[in-house]
Amino acid sequence: MNALLEVKGLVKSYSGVHAVRGVSFSLQAGEILALIGPNGAGKSTCFNMLNGQIRPNAGSIRLNGEEMVGLPPRTVWRRGVGRTFQITATFSSMTVRENVQVALLSYHRRLWSVLGYAGAAHREEADDLLTLVGMDQQAERPCGELAYGDLKRLELAVALANQPRLLLMDEPTAGMAPKERVELMRLTAAIARKKDMGVLFTEHDMDVVFEHADAVMVLNRGELIARGSPQEVRRDPHVQAIYLGEGLLYDAKHREEAVQ
């Protein structure tokens, strides 16, 4: 079976400093893959290359066999890659529903239309997406008023508007309460399974990573040093030395597994 996403030899350097050096991996449809590593290891750079925000110096990124390197973010999105940001990026002057409507208008290529009231466009479709992420009750609220967790869910709804085949989530649960984290990741997982969508996410909360990822990759100094199931990665002494430490900071059940 061909992979949904096939990344080969990705390299990026800034004024001589290598941020990412030769990263290769693949991701299957329906798979949830976590990318972890110390700060400054190159996770964000990797992410920004995947959605076209940064152009790699070398390497290839293929989505269902199609080369994506060199495309701007908006084209990458049209090819079916959705994205959420570490710091939520939403349209603060609009209501929750309008945020989704803009994405839908763009998806249906209607944004250059000068006729008609955009607030009436794709209303049901927007409400369906909001229902999916549990935000339908807040559709009329100004987006600028939302609590942080709700903003994250809205961002997910916006990212899903183009029926993505691949969803990129940059620290999706940062700044959320543990219960909200679990809910958001369960929701994401359910959508991924249902729509056969691949998910790649970065995360610092090891409880989230070990609980929700099908597989985990560890990035250090721009290189992948491990890839495997959560159990394998957790027990990897090299990963423990560089990144995980003594395991004082995640749930006991995960720590015990690591020690076994």
Binding site: S92, S93, W112, A159
Partner: peptide
């Protein structure tokens, strides 16, 4: 109009609009 919405979107968050 939809155009006006797109314009406001680009104003509110260039990053998200592009994405």
């Amino acid at each position: 109009s939809p155009f006006g919405f797109g314009l406001r979107a680009a104003r509110d968050s260039a990053l998200r609009a592009e994405a």
